[in-house]
Design a protein around this nucleic acid. Structure first.
Lengths: 136, 136
DNA sequence: CCGCATCCTGAACGATACTG
DNA sequence: CAGTATCGTTCAGGATGCGG
């Protein structure tokens, strides 16, 4: 009996349940900024300012917050060097690296399919603008 | 010459550039609700109310908005049956189905690694609460 | 049943100024 | 350099009521 349960659901968790803690994980990793940061760090260690430049458009505040969250969830390591000026390096943990393939997959999908998406948008927007036109 | 360019970057797009349209795609798919909806629809067509129940915690407004966005971007099809009461079915397009593996990967990663994430959080929160304690 | 319109609150975010 | 702190704004999102 317990075997069948194990076969049906390998984990007792369920992202579709809003009370399940996995939802919080989904919230963290299914996030634009998290994806971009993780992907940058998958190429190697970066300092705060480097990371900021590498992820165009992110504000200092959002970068700080996102890094804190990623660090708290064990995806990113923060190493501080007590020098003047201060030096802080961010890198992926093993757990963070285990997300590498997914994160790259997401970015690649976006780059590979943007033209299809834009084409779909054009069609959709045209249909929305003049829905009556189709009938006449 | 053009060959080397093609080899270096297969696409002229770059998600790290905030002006690049691929950022908008990333915004769409690197989103908690989009991921959950796409994953549900990858198992088959669903009506609006079914989808709402299947994605626990989503409000009607957010579901509507997210579905519109996914439809506009060509990931989801909306089929309307002019019956009483009205019947609206949502399903994935081919483009949406091409995201299936990634979407499933994200959800599975969350379910498979939640315990590691929670363990990391415990460590992080303890260290933040009493950082002086380590020295004594 | 589906989902649009409206109102409203709180969280997210940008900009700026300041510190170790 | 790498933040923290504060302020002001914007906007996502919840609640409710109505309409096709």
């Amino acid at each position: 009996m317990s075997d069948s349960i194990l076969l049906e659901t390998r984990y007792p968790w369920n992202v579709f349940n809003s009370q399940c803690p996995t939802r919080q994980v989904l919230d963290r990793i299914a996030d634009k900024w998290s994806v971009l940061i993780l992907r940058r760090l998958s190429d190697g260690t970066l300092r705060f300012a480097q990371l900021r430049r590498a992820v165009d458009g992110i504000s200092q505040k959002v970068l700080t917050n996102t890094l804190r969250g990623l660090e708290r969830d064990g995806l990113v390591t923060r190493r501080i060097y007590a020098s003047v000026p201060p030096r802080v390096e961010y890198s992926l943990t093993d757990l963070g690296r285990s997300l590498g393939g997914l994160v790259e997959g997401i970015c690649c999908w976006a780059e590979a399919n943007i033209e299809r998406v834009e084409a779909a948008r054009t069609v959709y927007d045209l249909a929305s603008a003049a829905p009556e036109g189709e009938i006449h």
